[in-house]
Amino acid sequence: MTTYTGNVSPGAPPDVRELTGLTISKLSVGPMDNNAYLLRCASTGDQVLIDAANEAPRLLELIGDAGLSAVVTTHRHMDHWVALEEVVATTGARSLVHAADADGLPIPSESLADGDRIRVGERELEVIHIVGHTPGSVALLYRDETDGTHLFTGDSLFPGGVGNTDRDPVRFGSLIDDVEQKIFDRLPDETWFYPGHGKDSTLGAERPSIPEWRSRGW
């Protein structure tokens, strides 16, 4: 079996992680090297897409004939939803986004709130509201006794730091506080996280750098 690395690039095949209860397919789409994640329940085949970022034909090929129950948009920035309208129109999937970012999307979408649960067949994702990169950014938590802890962070957390806040101290303070309190203070070091761009990491690898992130202010 091929070992999952999370290293993908635009135009390249997806990297696929086979967990016991969930399959995670990570695909990079251009032109901004956005990550899109297709989650499939191992028991039912139900599928959910995180960020229909761009290149709708490639996303639809990844989805295949199994259909799609929902698209979750992690935040309102356009590079994370360019393909949303086409994917939803083609598949009939529900469009989900946090209420505070709903006005930024091109189609009417169902509103999410902190603590909501999103079903992926027999599995579920917990919505974690993270304020700072945008008012309605969310991270999505998958936790299972067998599969461990997996977190899809959008643009709120990357290897090496939190997301962009345009050097606004209020936005940065909100983001770093939410990331530390809602993610690092709550989840174990072995938590693997999957960001909206670039490579994955674990909370354990990033945790020692939090004081540095705070002191530099970005």
Rank of each mutant, 00 (worst) to 15 (best):
2 T>P: 13
2 T>C: 00
4 Y>M: 05
8 V>G: 01
8 V>M: 04
13 P>I: 15
14 P>K: 06
14 P>D: 05
15 D>N: 14
18 E>R: 03
18 E>W: 00
21 G>R: 12
25 S>E: 15
26 K>C: 04
27 L>N: 04
27 L>I: 00
28 S>Y: 04
28 S>F: 05
30 G>W: 02
33 D>F: 11
34 N>V: 07
39 L>V: 00
40 R>A: 12
40 R>I: 13
42 A>K: 12
43 S>C: 06
45 G>W: 04
47 Q>M: 08
47 Q>A: 15
54 N>P: 06
55 E>P: 00
55 E>S: 07
59 L>H: 05
63 I>T: 08
65 D>T: 13
68 L>V: 09
70 A>D: 02
70 A>M: 05
70 A>K: 11
78 M>W: 14
81 W>N: 14
82 V>L: 12
83 A>H: 06
84 L>K: 04
84 L>T: 02
85 E>N: 12
86 E>N: 06
88 V>P: 08
88 V>N: 01
96 L>P: 03
97 V>H: 00
98 H>V: 02
102 A>I: 10
103 D>K: 08
104 G>P: 03
104 G>C: 05
105 L>N: 04
107 I>V: 15
107 I>R: 10
107 I>E: 10
108 P>K: 05
109 S>V: 09
109 S>N: 11
113 A>N: 08
118 I>Y: 07
119 R>N: 07
119 R>G: 09
119 R>C: 11
121 G>I: 08
122 E>W: 13
123 R>Q: 13
125 L>N: 08
131 V>K: 09
135 P>G: 01
136 G>T: 10
137 S>T: 15
137 S>N: 09
141 L>K: 07
141 L>E: 09
144 D>T: 06
145 E>W: 00
145 E>R: 13
150 H>E: 02
158 F>D: 13
159 P>S: 09
164 N>W: 15
166 D>P: 10
174 S>G: 01
185 D>G: 07
185 D>S: 15
187 L>W: 00
187 L>P: 00
190 E>Y: 10
191 T>Y: 01
194 Y>T: 02
195 P>S: 06
195 P>T: 02
201 S>R: 05
205 A>F: 11
208 P>S: 08
217 G>K: 10
218 W>L: 13
